[in-house]
């Protein structure tokens, strides 16, 4: 596969969220505000890229028995590096991301890509695959967050769009709405892909 194909594949065709049903936990918690979703998405992209790259570099040396532990170690290390970096240089953003650090480590997407791709491909390709998967995930997050923030708070990235006349949909602020929105998104994408196949 060419690099472009790898990227498009992990971004769209094999999208981590709607196709592989991975990374759901964080998709539920973070998506009530666009800003948080963006930070989370970027954090995941970074971690995915570097983790997949590193794991791919070591792939021929990792003993099969303990490969999960090794992957987890590498992933956790990068996440902590991101966290420490943010705490020191971008403290406000760190405060926003703080609670989610643990969620990134156990984000099944990272493990999933590591197992499915990074263990069997070259480092650069793995990094590209990781970035694609991360962006696909971030994309889904932003779409859901757009609706949740708009209907739940009436804002867009913190800027008031809908005025006082709008009765806030509290359910959009609470996590269950993410379930419904995600299901709707999956339904929508399915129909789009079905239509594309028919044409």
């Amino acid at each position: 596969m060419t690099k472009k194909q790898i990227f498009i594949n992990s971004l769209y065709h094999e999208n981590a969220v709607w196709r592989q049903i991975l990374g759901i936990c964080s998709a539920l918690a973070v998506t009530n505000q666009l800003m948080n979703s963006l930070v989370m998405g970027l954090g995941v992209v970074f971690t995915l890229a570097f983790s997949c790259f590193t794991i791919s570099l070591l792939r021929n040396y990792i003993p099969a028995r303990i490969r999960m532990m090794v992957q987890v170690l590498i992933i956790a290390s990068y996440v902590i590096i991101v966290d420490l970096f943010l705490k020191a240089f971008l403290p406000d953003i760190s405060k926003a991301l703080g609670p989610y650090v643990g969620l990134i480590i156990t984000n099944c997407i990272i493990m999933g890509r590591a197992e499915a791709f990074a263990m069997k491909n070259t480092p650069l390709n793995s990094a590209i695959d990781g970035i694609g998967a991360g962006l696909g995930y971030a994309f889904v997050l932003l779409i859901i967050a757009f609706f949740r923030e708009l209907f739940g708070f009436g804002t867009f990235f913190g800027f008031q769009i809908l005025g006082q006349w709008w009765t806030k949909w509290s359910i959009m602020v609470m996590a269950p709405s993410a379930f419904f929105m995600l299901a709707l998104l999956m339904w929508f994408v399915y129909n789009v892909q079905l239509k594309n196949k028919k044409d």
Binding site: P176, A178, F179, F180, M186, N191, L194
Partner: peptide, 21 residues
Amino acid sequence: AGLRGAGLSLIITGIMALGFI
């Protein structure tokens, strides 16, 4: 068809979560 599997599970879970609130 679009909701079979994961989509429906999400909706069911969403309703359960609402109940748990």
